[in-house]
Design a protein around this nucleic acid. Structure first.
Lengths: 225, 225
DNA sequence: ATTTAAATATGATATTTGTCATGATTTACT
DNA sequence: AGTAAATCATGACAAATATCATATTTAAAT
């Protein structure tokens, strides 16, 4: 099994603030795990006994709403940590995590994380900074949800996925999402998401073959009202 | 001027994790300030040079959306801290803070807060815990915005204000919000908020004389669909 | 106290979004 | 390969919400 000290992934998250010794210790008790596309990593309401460091792949964080629909609250990629919020606040998870790709993650037990949080202020501060960023992003999502149309939100979602998760050589978005996933990000009915995507296609803003979506006119997409 | 070490307010926020010495030091460089109802404490995009500890009163945190409407993202009360997110991430404020009451706040310079964040892991951990709570609440707001009707959101807002900010002796909500404020919490047009409040009144769920709103049937309000 | 401005209220109507139905296409499975 | 089950697509209609217009009431200012 590879060692945390040498892992390049940690450069992208708060683990980089740990000392060599701390990393060696964590490396000794972490477990590596492969997760298949569609698999649930943890459920809403589950007690998380640790934090996941995402080495590869992408997952969605969802919350089931009263009307029985999943809302995608955030997407987590390679390099991100998963489950810090629950571990820090010692609460059950408020979200479900589901793999959108095949994934590879390392699981670090809660006790190790908490030990370092209490001992290493740099690490704690880094986790804090990360959470501050998450919080700002969440504020932005709230405002978008409250004030923008489904059309605008969907356009922005496509741009966001394009910019954050990249594209294949042919220009198509590298993360494959179902129309239902798009609806659950945007907070609309699946049919509405489908309809708006069809409109974007007709208007030449995107092209789509099945789940393969490609931005054709990003400037026009940005201008969508 | 009163001293932080003796201030009871700090029991309600992360400052309680500071040592006596740290509190004395902070006490020496804090400034107390009174803010009148309606006054802006800081604006969106402003550089915050410190954190506010709310000793009395309530304020709203808003973000201006592209369509020119303010969205109320969170409300902050006596006992809460204000501005931690921006200070931690060393970014300009992503929100505007406006007093809804006459307020009394203590301003603590950024340098002091950051010094303690780097030295006192208990304090940092406490701030982290607080932010984790804010983040969970923000996730909940996202889901509500995305999946619930204006009617439901408004009903829940009234209950939230009732439970979190309390009532006057006659049972009316102690925080006076304009109909526009309600609209900006719920993310709807002012006219829609007014209309729904009128409906609630007709249905006997609330009574309202001007801005004075009183819950008449909280169970029915909880059941609103 | 009177005037002026702002906030509240309500109707009429347009627009957006959701729901239900139904068919086509794609994917998964044996 | 062939079948079943998802997923995608689109129409028709219903419901929710926004917008515009215009009173009415309330608060603020002189």
């Amino acid at each position: 099994m590879s060692k945390c000290e040498q892992c390049i992934i940690k450069q992208f998250n708060s683990l980089k603030a740990l000392t060599k010794d701390e990393l060696v210790r964590i490396s000794g008790c972490k477990t590596s795990r492969k997760i298949k596309k569609g698999e649930v990593i943890f459920e809403e309401g589950e007690v998380l006994n640790g934090v996941y460091c995402v080495r590869d792949g992408i997952c969605k964080l969802t919350k089931l709403s009263a009307n029985g629909k999943d809302q995608i609250v955030k997407m987590v990629v390679k390099g991100d940590l998963l489950g810090q919020r629950s571990v820090v606040s010692e609460e059950r998870s408020n979200l479900q995590a589901t793999a959108l790709n095949d994934m590879e993650v390392c699981f670090i037990p809660k006790s190790e994380i908490l030990a370092d949080l209490h001992k290493n202020p740099d690490f704690t501060f880094d986790v804090l900074k990360d959470m501050a960023k998450d919080l700002r992003e969440a504020d932005d999502v709230i405002v978008n949800m409250a004030q923008k149309s489904v059309r605008q939100r969907l356009a922005e979602t496509i741009i966001y996925i394009h910019n954050s998760f990249g594209t294949n050589p042919d220009g198509t978005l590298s993360v494959l999402l179902s129309r239902e996933d798009f609806a659950n990000i945007v907070g609309t009915a699946t049919e509405s998401a489908i309809r708006v995507l069809s409109q974007f296609k007709k208007e030449g803003l995107i092209s789509a073959v099945g789940k393969q979506i490609k931005i054709e006119d990003i400037e026009a997409l940005k201008r969508v009202e």
